[in-house]
Write a protein that binds this DNA or RNA. Structure first.
Lengths: 298, 298
DNA sequence: TGCATCCATAAAGAGAACTTATCCATGAAA
DNA sequence: TTTCATGGATAAGTTCTCTTTATGGATGCA
């Protein structure tokens, strides 16, 4: 179906109002234009069709046969458009799409999102976890939780969590080797995702010279969640973000032998497009999230 | 349902084309506008909705979830509008509404209209007979057959038949009184619609002095058809337009004793609004009608 | 590496649509 | 009957949306 540029959409909109209100003047009033403009549009439409749509009586107008035929179809079509646009606006206003790293989603969001829903029951949340960094141009995302340096152009970023890391293992495994007292003790155990640069960085910070990490398998699992699962199962020592695994530590599933944490200068950030900072659902989410992390807000 | 002036109808039209063709450039081409204009309209719509409708990939675009949701509704609505307008145009282009006097409709149009339908099979004819003079402003009429002086402002008028009149009666009735030889003979018979000024006018033209028409009943029947029926039934002499009753004369039902006809300067005219003279159905009807009456055409 | 394709942006221009001012016709009220 | 209020039509001038022109950036293809 082709809709040429000269299809009189505006005139039809005006016609709909006039047909419904039975008056040029009233229609103009509703549409926020003068009676003259209404008259002009109706004339345009009548010329386009080639037949009068209204009978001009002294102090009133009446639909002609043609107008009587056209009116219901026009209002039906416009009703569909209005309804479609309304539902569109509603869903975009009321569903918040969060892109997040898998780890953050699982270890943090999944636990606390409930309180957000309670606080903002009319906002539906769609949580999308993806490995790659979100491009707001290309994905229908409202906000993203990323890690990095927070210097993304066009985005507003709030640091929500320091991304530091420390070795963690199951208390049982630690006991098996008579406890972990010195950083070097860790080298007796399997290092999970040993290829991760965080290992070398942490050992360097701990003053361990030449830990020879090359003798461990180089496999990497990509998400801390997996590393953590292995560690909890006693499969070795994982390099994890303590902030994410406080619960497991508290429950005795994981044990962090050293306070020392490493950091590569990258942290967790909440980010969203600068030009959408005032969209209510985004503002609400930002406020809620930053409060949870006790971040000073502007 | 209210459709405010800023409801983005144009943008929706553009959106429909883009969604269907999958390209700003192609949509612009179809709509007869540049890619830039399409881009502008889509952006407008996206701002109005508050969510992107297309994912901008390097060399292609893709509907977002939102766009995917909106597109079918929009095309449905526009399909209804297009269909309604098309059927509207079609019926107004293809049905010709003729307003006519009852006499002309019955005595002339009803007999010859068939040949018009044969010649223009795609034009449907609606024939409306009405006593009052048609106001093209107030009635959905395309053409009118009227009698008068042809000097109606805003209308184009073609004289199609002289409106003259002559006494007519049934041959049988004429024989009963030994034939009608002199105008005075008519006064022996009942004069139908004797109050009609045409009687006085005709007798004056015939040189009959003081016919004393007041002794006849003053009843008038309004249409020549009725007068004619009475005359055919032998109920008296009627003052009729010979042009309308040629067939009855030929068939021996009526008899016109004198060649002399009266006229009050008013004739039958085909009339239609000046500004619609080039509407095809009107042009076709005018040509056909004037040919039937051998009228010189411009 | 160069060319073609496709969309985005900025600035300037065109033209449709709107407003102001005025008129006309009619019905109701004085 | 005259006057006033209502509702629409018309003409001319103006506004402002939409469009185009010009340009740039990104990507895929040869």
């Amino acid at each position: 179906m082709k809709l040429s540029k000269q299809f009189p959409l505006n005139a039809l909109r005006v016609f709909e109002a006039v047909a419904r209100l039975g008056s040029f003047t009233r229609a103009g009033h509703e549409l926020g234009m003068t009676q003259t403009a209404v008259s002009y549009q109706i004339k345009l439409l009548e010329e386009n069709i080639g037949a009068p749509l209204f009978l001009r009586m002294p102090r009133q107008i009446e639909l002609t046969e043609a107008g009587e035929h056209l009116a219901p179809r026009v209002s039906e079509a416009f009703a569909i458009l209005v309804e479609a646009m309304a539902s569109m606006r509603k869903t975009t206003e009321e569903t918040l799409t969060i892109h997040s790293t898998a780890t953050f989603a699982q270890q943090w969001l999944s636990r606390y999102l409930g309180s957000f829903q309670l606080e903002f029951p009319h906002i539906a949340v769609r949580l999308v976890t993806s490995g790659h960094i979100v491009d707001f141009q290309k994905e229908a995302a409202d906000v993203a939780i990323r890690w990095g340096r927070g210097d993304w152009p066009g985005l507003i970023s709030h640091r929500i969590m320091k991304l530091d890391f420390a070795p963690m293992l199951s208390p049982k495994l630690a006991a098996e080797i008579g406890g972990v007292h010195e950083p070097e003790d860790l080298l007796k155990l399997a290092l999970i995702s040993a290829g991760d640069p965080w290992w070398a960085q942490w050992f360097a910070a701990a003053g361990v010279k030449d830990p020879d990490l090359s003798r461990y398998p180089k496999s990497e699992f990509g998400t801390q969640i997996l590393d953590a699962s292995i560690a909890i199962a006693g499969g070795g020592v994982a390099m994890l973000n303590p902030g994410h695994f406080q619960d497991d530590v508290a429950a005795g599933r994981l044990y962090q032998p050293f306070e020392l944490t490493g950091s590569d200068g990258r942290d967790y950030w909440l980010a969203y497009p600068e030009n959408r900072r005032n969209v209510p659902k985004i503002r609400n989410f930002r406020k809620w999230l930053l409060e949870k992390f006790d971040v000073q807000q502007a």
